[in-house]
Design a protein around this nucleic acid. Structure first.
Lengths: 175, 175
DNA sequence: TCTGCCATGTAAGTTGTTACATGATTAT
DNA sequence: ATAATCATGTAACAACTTACATGGCAGA
């Protein structure tokens, strides 16, 4: 359900091809929603047959032709309706927690090593997010309304990553 | 992949039926991994045909017969091997962030209302986690090794929920 | 009487993943 | 030379969700 709406949001920002979308889902938008190009193409076909988006073929020389997709009025309406509907909390689903839960089955050193590794990965992700913050949102007051909303999603990422790093520290202290 | 191992971890704690497992995945273990009873029964069949678990039929009067599953030596070994393998970070996948990202498409009041509602839900979840903490882990020193590991997973839940509440506050301030 | 619990299962549909396929252009 | 980028797609499979199905027993 949400993939459809995630695509609509991104297409609303700017009309683009499936290929372009796949890149956004691998980068910026991918921080809060992921999709492979196969999923995206499948949903684009569905969305177009429903009339929520339309495509315009762009003939190119030297590289493959592409289809530029843009959101129709109907699609825009559907997206707004969806945004206005209240949504549930998303449950945590974390492999590392299963491993830690069964941590008593293996050696303490192995767990320490794994958590330390995990902490390292979270530190890297945090650093990457903070760089984006410094680069693109150094003065939130100057941002457009649209940019301020995307900044807020980034803020969640930063907060969550900080907490992961802190939790890993707590686990390491505790073992 | 992980569902199989989550089942193995829970069955290692205590042999139980598919029905019992489904309840655990709806409660305690469900905090970090979710599964419906349909998924669980399917995986149990697979696990048994692989020889990672074995079942013992329990005939009951007045209520349906059941199968008690327990982990075999092979299953135990496979679980340990899996725990020892390093794992990747899990990406965030949050519907609310798509909605906030497209927040400029709807009225500010609607967004405020939705975020406030979300904050309320996270507060409730946090309170529930903290109650479990106070009830079952009020003295971590007295806990068994096994209980200390499950306590650490709860600690992550508490930390993440706290951060969600704080982030919602930040969003509300910012709009 | 009706709801909920116990206990397991089938079936269908939707998502998500992985692999394969094409073919020119540009950078190393 | 070789790999990566651009651009789209098919096919098969794995995972997950939702609905349907059974049937006795206990409690409000």
């Amino acid at each position: 359900m949400s993939l459809i709406h995630a695509i609509l949001v991104v297409l609303t920002e700017a009309p683009q091809s499936g290929y372009d979308l796949a890149k956004r889902f691998d980068g910026s938008v991918g921080f809060f929603w992921q999709a492979t190009h196969q999923q995206i193409y499948r949903e684009l076909n569905k969305l177009e047959s429903q009339g929520w988006i339309i495509s315009q073929p762009i003939v190119q020389s030297g590289r493959p032709d592409k289809k530029m997709f843009s959101v129709t009025d109907l699609g825009q309406q559907q997206l707004q309706d969806w945004i206005l509907q209240p949504c549930e909390l998303t449950a945590i689903k974390e492999e590392i927690l299963i491993k830690l839960y069964g941590g008593y089955l293996v050696s303490g050193e192995a767990i320490v090593k794994e958590i330390a590794h995990h902490q390292q990965l979270h530190r890297q992700k945090l650093a990457a997010f903070q760089q984006i913050e410094a680069k693109f949102f150094n003065d939130p007051a100057k941002c457009s309304k649209q940019a301020r909303f995307s900044y807020l999603t980034l803020r969640l990422g930063i907060r969550i990553e900080q907490e992961w790093v802190a939790w890993c520290e707590e686990v390491l202290q505790s073992i």
